[in-house]
Design a protein around this nucleic acid. Structure first.
Length: 303
DNA sequence: GGGCCCGCAGGG
DNA sequence: CCCTGCGGGCCC
């Protein structure tokens, strides 16, 4: 009956960047940031979809396009003073998950946030950011804090992504160079493929694991976007470790028709519930495998 | 249902 | 200004 509204990642239709709100209640009603008090909206499974910078956290840094946001926890609720260490759970784990999955986070600034980028009054939606990095530090209080570096996403996505509903088809996955080359966002189906393989590389079986959980990459067999126009569908997606993803993208790993591999040992691991398109594999071989270096006539002659 | 949280209003 | 009480919604 009272089903929880679906968490929406990305921009909320009807509320473009720069939209202002009088109160947290207005922000909540619009769905731009649902919690009325908490600074982080999200959970450990899906990631964080929005945050609010509203002052009060002494270790925050705001450079406009770059924000170092402080996690929550360890504060006396009355005084706001840090009285113990923070842990990687709750909203903190949600932000870490967003970093692992490359999900966009809506950023809202409040007037009480001491920064040249904060609004005069109320709250303002300031666009989408990715969680580029997260780590722990000793804050000014002397207690452990979790810190999240957020970088502004320069382009505005055309459609919002919804978790739990199957209409997440993107024509392209934008990339951005940061400390590493990282996918800005994965589609729902890409995350499902990674889950199906339990984040193990289909080539080597490697499973990378950090404090917030496992990390793998979704690789497209026939690339997205013009002129390849590969679909963002499970039969065109592989779950790979970063090395084999890069090797695959750059033609150093070729998957043959019988799933043996050139550039790696053995056969590609394929889950029984994962159908991979032979057509897309063929396209990849035809366009990315190193061409045979055959001696050719210097000039074509007609007889 | 318990506990948490970057609100908010009101009073001193 | 600071402090207090009272909170709604949501995560676990």
């Amino acid at each position: 009956m009272a089903t929880m509204a679906e968490r929406t990642f990305g921009q909320i239709p009807g509320y473009p960047e720069g939209t202002t709100f009088d109160s947290r209640a207005e922000l909540s009603e619009a769905g731009v940031h649902r919690p009325l008090m908490a600074g982080i909206s999200g959970n450990a499974r899906d990631g964080a979809d929005s945050i609010v910078l509203s002052g009060g956290y002494e270790d925050d840094k705001d450079l406009g396009d770059e924000i170092v946001y402080t996690g929550h926890g360890g504060r006396d609720p009355r005084t706001g003073v840090q009285v113990s260490d923070q842990a990687l759970r709750g909203g903190n784990l949600a932000l870490a998950k967003s970093s692992l999955e490359g999900l966009p986070v809506r950023v809202i600034r409040g007037s009480r946030h001491a920064s040249p980028y904060s609004p005069e009054s109320g709250y303002r939606y300031d666009g989408l950011y990715t969680v580029d990095d997260y780590w722990h530090d000793v804050g000014r209080s002397g207690f452990l804090i979790w810190r999240f570096r957020l970088l502004k996403v320069p382009t505005v996505p055309s459609a919002a992504e919804r978790v739990g509903e199957g209409r997440a088809d993107y024509s392209a996955a934008p990339r951005r160079e940061t400390t590493v080359l990282r996918v800005v966002r994965d589609t729902r189906q890409a995350r499902e493929i990674k889950a199906l393989y339990d984040y193990r590389c289909q080539v080597c079986g490697t499973r990378l694991e950090g404090p917030a959980g496992p990390y793998a990459e979704a690789a497209h067999i026939r690339p997205l976007g013009a002129p390849h126009d590969g679909p963002d569908t499970p039969d065109n997606t592989l779950c790979l470790c970063p090395n084999h993803h890069a090797l695959f993208d750059h033609g150093g790993l070729v998957i043959e028709e019988d799933l043996t591999m050139t550039g790696a040992e053995g056969r590609l691991t394929v889950h029984p519930r994962h159908r991979i398109s032979n057509e897309h594999l063929r396209y990849r071989r035809e366009h990315y495998r190193a061409p045979e270096e055959e001696p050719r006539p210097a000039a074509r002659t007609t007889t």
